[in-house]
């Protein structure tokens, strides 16, 4: 991909790179001695603020999408409900503050039940998935299923004499082979993160400039 040399693009790279380097140095060195500690703290605080704006940006986007849906009459009722609920919550919160009774009531009796129940539906789907998807096809799937069944059975200790040994075996499985596998995965992922981050800091990847 050819990139025209653009001063603007270079500025972005410099911003990202400089910010990154200062913060990164903080991991390696004690910045106090370089009087950079304050700068790092400032940069971090700024990053938090910008991240907050990013979150708000997402929220605004959701509003936009829903407004559009209302306009297009595509699932309009639900979008209306969404918008109305959002507006109401915002009003309650902005007027009276997040500590207000109204907002806390809303949180406790509206948000929590809704969100918690939505996720608890997963339990049912997991059962259906377990029925439909887990077929013994090859050694890999046999292994998968065996370990899953073992862990499921022994996570809640049974009242049989052999249950303790089973639980001990389960603990061993979790602590040794499963852990080895996940450690490998984590290491791989982390290496990838380091690579990606470096590419970004060095300006090789520039996701910020289109």
């Amino acid at each position: 991909m050819k990139r025209r040399f653009s001063i603007l693009s270079s500025i972005y790279v410099i911003i990202a790179g400089a910010t990154g380097i200062i913060i990164l140095l903080g991991f390696f060195f004690n910045l106090e001695s370089w009087h950079l500690q304050g700068l790092q703290t400032i940069l971090l605080d700024w990053a938090i603020v910008v991240a907050a704006f990013a979150f708000l940006l997402g929220a605004v986007n959701v509003v936009r999408v829903n407004v559009m849906r209302v306009r297009q009459r595509k699932g309009a009722l639900y979008s209306l409900v969404t918008l109305a609920a959002m507006l109401l919550t915002l009003t309650l919160g902005l007027l009276d503050g997040p500590q207000s009774l109204a907002l806390q009531w809303t949180f406790k009796w509206v948000l929590v039940p809704l969100q918690a129940t939505l996720f608890s539906l997963m339990a049912f789907f997991v059962v259906v998935a377990a029925w439909r998807v887990f077929r013994l096809r090859n050694l890999a799937s046999v292994l998968l299923l065996l370990v899953a069944a073992l862990v499921l059975i022994s996570q809640v200790p049974l009242n049989f004499p052999w249950a303790e040994d089973l639980a001990a075996f389960k603990n061993w499985i979790l602590a040794v082979p499963a852990m080895a596998g996940s450690r490998g995965i984590i290491l791989g992922v982390t290496l990838g993160i380091v690579t990606t981050g470096l590419r970004l800091l060095l300006g090789i990847d520039r996701p910020y400039s289109e």
Binding site: A51, F55, G58, L118, I193, T196, G197
Partner: peptide, 26 residues
Amino acid sequence: EEEATLPDWLAAVVPPAEEEEAVLEA
């Protein structure tokens, strides 16, 4: 994560944080 194309926090920045994810999850 395996692809590690964009660390989660990066993804979290553009599109934003939990609420959106919660929405998406919902």
